[in-house]
Design a protein around this nucleic acid. Structure first.
Lengths: 362, 362
DNA sequence: TTGAAAGCGCTAACAC
DNA sequence: GTGTTAGCGCTTTCAA
């Protein structure tokens, strides 16, 4: 009595699953349960039966409904990637080439696919005083098996404690704080130190640093990395830290501050590409040639820095790797496998281009 | 007997909905059915009852489970945005700044949110001989209410006929072909004509055109727009159409061909940014200054073209608008409202920057 | 206008 | 090893 499948309504009416577990069971001559066991790779199925069921599945083109799976108390095979709404939308609107979302999808989607999961990308409002309400609603509606948090959510206590409360596996990208959920981050300090080292090795002694928005903990870690390396080399840092907030404008004013010092800097490290573009604009405006008059190095390595004049040397953030690792960790948790209790640290890269060179008077 | 909610297991165990329709019904002192009616804005509920139910919902923070809704034959409140796997992953990997995905998410996510839907982004393999199998599996697993197709899927008969067969509402972005699903597209012909007009108005007579990959129907439409405008102005087109395939390399060779003509072109329109970058490279290599020796205009207006030397004049594709419109059309279909039978056409923009100028010998 | 019953497709728990 | 039973949270009949 297996329905013929052609039964589907042509108009967008009530859509039923065309092939269900029942059809497969009938076709293979086994119970629903046995089919379920085969689908889920559960034990207690004789190889020959498994074989038979599998070929029925293939023949009928059966695919389990995640709605039904979820409803009956199992997995939803859904992992939710949460990003900050305002920031993400602003990035998209400005079209400055920020490809954080793309890299996250790249790393995340490919990795979840390996495990038969799906990645769903969602935006959450941080400023909102009812973050909790919004997040609870999303979780209730979607019932994901795991959640990936990105800065600044990764260290938002309202969010992390809610996730912990409802018992969802989650990863915190860009965080090194202890606590619930798997923390994983680029090695921000080392990256900043590496950038500093690169410039110092070129002969720079006065290396200025433009920090990022303080609500991102990575901002401080980058500052520390720079300070540490400077001190290690016996170079002065006083007055050479300019505050920024990741915006173009803050890059402009910070750069001006660093260039207007009694003893101006000969190199600048900007905590992100956008501020570096601000620095570039100031240099251009003042007729300073890069890199001969001023070396410039930035963080993020978004696409545009390959096309600026000159192309910028930049710290490359392994966003795709981090996302893939986050997925792996979440799936380990779901499988009740061991996970590291220390934050996972991924190395950053340094892509050398033509915005850095020895200082003029070296 | 309403459970206290704190009942949730702390470990990632079996997660149940915390507040279900049953709790709401109990709290409001009505049947499940009445609650369901309120949730779905169905008729036959007295205002006072509706009120009472609604306040219970708010009080308990109830959110319907889409899994359960879907399973019982209703909406999934999910719209699937399908992109070409190979192309998308290649774009992401290359980090050339292609922000098609971002713009699509921008337009799509904001719009679905207005209607209480969610957008899910998925990749589908076109080359695969089992597209149908793959797509069927995705549809069966996710059970979306609607699907958004992008080029080249928009005109892939295997895909469109499958969607029609299973009766899912869908929109085809970048297509003007008649057939099932709502077709909506940028006005490619007019955009190319506009680009041509811009250059002709500057005084160019020999305007070369680099076409895109032929499997994208928009490639031909762009060529037609250019040809049409050239003819309208009595300008020759013979030999000035160079074939490309949207790759950087094809932009390079096409540009060389156009510059190596007995009478070289004085302006080039590239069918996408990447090929324009190829053209830029050739110009640089040959010591041709842009725009004084050669004007260059591209399609797409991806972020990088603002940062090239010089920044490129470009046709702006309103991807976010198209995605938003696609969502609107799908929801109209779901609500059984009327939809246009003609393809919907969205106007393109032309962003003038410094890569176009009057020809030298004008 | 409201409610009760049945069932969507699947899995957990238990029986055999 | 395998099958049976019950039920996930909701919506759709259909009855009151």
């Amino acid at each position: 009595m297996t329905p013929k499948g052609g039964q589907t309504s042509t108009l967008a009416g009530r859509r039923r699953q065309q092939v269900t577990i029942r059809h497969v069971a009938a076709d293979a001559g086994v119970s629903l349960q046995t089919v379920s066991r085969v689908i889920n790779n559960a034990p207690n199925v004789r190889p020959e039966v498994k074989q038979r069921v599998q070929s029925s599945i293939d023949k009928l083109g059966y695919v389990p409904s995640i709605a039904a799976q979820r409803l009956s108390g199992s997995r939803s095979y859904l992992i939710l990637a949460l990003n900050d709404r305002d920031r993400t939308i602003a990035d998209w609107r400005e079209r400055q080439g920020a490809d954080w979302v793309d890299q996250m999808l790249l790393g995340g989607m490919l990795k979840v696919a390996e495990y038969g999961y799906r990645l769903m990308f969602e935006l959450v409002d941080t400023h909102d005083d009812h973050v909790e309400r919004e997040l609870r609603a999303t979780l209730a509606a979607l019932q994901p098996d795991g959640v990936i948090l990105t800065p600044p959510h990764s260290e938002n206590v309202q969010i992390t404690s809610l996730l912990q409360e409802v018992g969802i596996a989650f990863a915190r990208i860009g965080s090194v704080q202890p606590g619930a959920g798997v923390a994983l981050s680029m090695d921000e300090e080392e990256a900043a130190a590496m950038a500093t080292r690169h410039l110092a090795d070129l002969g720079h002694k006065r290396i200025g640093f433009i920090s990022g928005a303080p609500e991102y903990s990575l901002s401080n870690r980058r500052v520390s990395g720079w300070q540490g390396e400077m001190k290690r080399r016996g170079l002065a840092v006083k007055g050479m830290l300019a505050k920024g907030d990741f915006s173009f404008e803050s890059g402009v004013s910070a750069t001006k501050a660093l260039l207007d010092l009694k003893e101006p800097v000969t190199a600048i490290i900007a905590s992100n590409d956008r501020m570096a573009l601000g620095a570039l604009a100031v240099a251009h405006e003042r007729g300073l040639e890069i890199p001969s008059n001023l070396s410039l190095l930035s963080f993020d390595n978004t696409p545009v820095v390959r096309f600026t004049g000159p192309p910028l040397t930049a710290v490359d953030q392994p966003v795709a790797d981090l996302a893939a690792l986050a997925v792996e960790m979440i799936i380990r948790v779901l499988r009740k496998q061991e996970i590291p209790h220390q934050p996972l640290i991924v190395e950053a890269g340094l892509v050398k281009r033509s915005s850095t060179a020895p200082p003029r008077a070296a």
